[in-house]
Every structure is written in structure tokens, then in C-alpha cells.
């Protein structure tokens, strides 16, 4: 199957591959997996005290579309507030990357990953509040 130019670009030059310290209170970690194909994705965000995403990174073990979807999302969320980032839809990702229907689940995975990272950060903050 032929990948679109944008998928190839992200696949060959993935942006923001890496990891942040999971224990850092400013870091939210999203970890998701696609049972349909066995892809695993980790997406992390570093968030300032006023709720702006300053940095993001990912590591994905999966196909080109899954790598491109997560790479794109790390670019998109930078500079956004948590609320803005949570409105990113898998359809936006799929459209930007021109994903074919059989690869839509890769964009769903990336959307779920950013959600999961945001939730992780929120639950961390609530824990901190409870402890005080």
C-alpha cells in the first residue's frame, strides 16, 4: 500500500521521538495499544503551571501510519492548552495525513494517546491536591 507524502515525511523524519521523566509532576504520560494490530504508542507532554503544553514527545512501535500520527500530534499539541489539545480529533489527523480507511485506527490510537496523557497529568495534579 502506498503511503502519502506526509506519512512518509513523518515516518522518515519523525519529530520529537524520545521520553520525559514519568515521575515529573509536570509530565503527563499516555500509553495506548491497538489490539487490532499490536501497535504500542507512548505519548508524553510537559505542561507549565498555567496549563500550557511546552513540549511533547512520543515513541511508537507500529506501522508507518501509527508513527506518523503520533509524530504529527506531538507537533500539534505544542503551545496548546490542555483544553485545546483535548479537542484534537482523529479525523483531523487522518485528514492531514491522508490516511486510507484501513489505517484510520492509527489516528484513533494517537487521539487516545493524547487523551490518556492529559488524563494522567490531571490525575497527578489531583493527587497532589489531596496530599496538601
Amino acid at each position: 500500500m502506498a503511503y502519502s507524502d506526509k506519512v512518509m515525511d513523518h515516518y522518515e523524519n519523525p519529530r520529537n521521538v524520545g521520553n520525559f521523566d514519568k515521575e515529573d509532576s509536570h509530565v503527563g504520560t499516555g500509553m495506548v495499544g491497538a489490539p487490532a494490530c499490536g501497535d504500542v504508542m507512548r505519548l508524553q507532554i510537559k505542561v507549565s503551571d498555567d496549563g500550557v503544553i511546552e513540549d511533547a514527545c512520543f515513541k511508537t512501535y507500529g506501522c508507518g501510519s501509527a508513527i506518523a500520527s503520533s509524530s504529527l500530534v506531538t507537533e500539534w499539541v505544542k503551545g496548546k492548552t490542555l483544553e485545546e489539545a483535548s479537542t484534537i480529533k482523529n479525523s483531523d489527523i487522518a485528514e492531514e495525513l491522508a490516511l486510507p480507511p484501513v489505517k484510520i485506527h492509527c489516528s484513533v490510537l494517537a487521539e487516545d494517546a493524547i487523551r490518556s496523557a492529559i488524563n494522567d497529568l490531571k490525575s497527578k495534579k489531583e493527587k497532589v491536591k489531596e496530599e496538601h
Partner: peptide
């Protein structure tokens, strides 16, 4: 029936899977 679109999985399991794939890489 399995919901193949459900991406939420046990966190520890995914973490292990990630670590094994990192080691393999």
C-alpha cells in the same frame, strides 16, 4: 465480541510491552 477499536489497556501490561520492544530495538 472483542472491541478492536478499544485502545485502553492495562497500563502495566503496555509498559512491559514498551520495554520489551525498546530492548528488541
Amino acid at each position: 465480541p472483542l472491541d478492536a477499536a478499544d485502545t485502553a489497556m492495562d497500563g502495566d501490561f503496555l509498559l512491559q510491552q514498551m520495554e520489551l520492544r525498546e530492548r528488541l530495538e
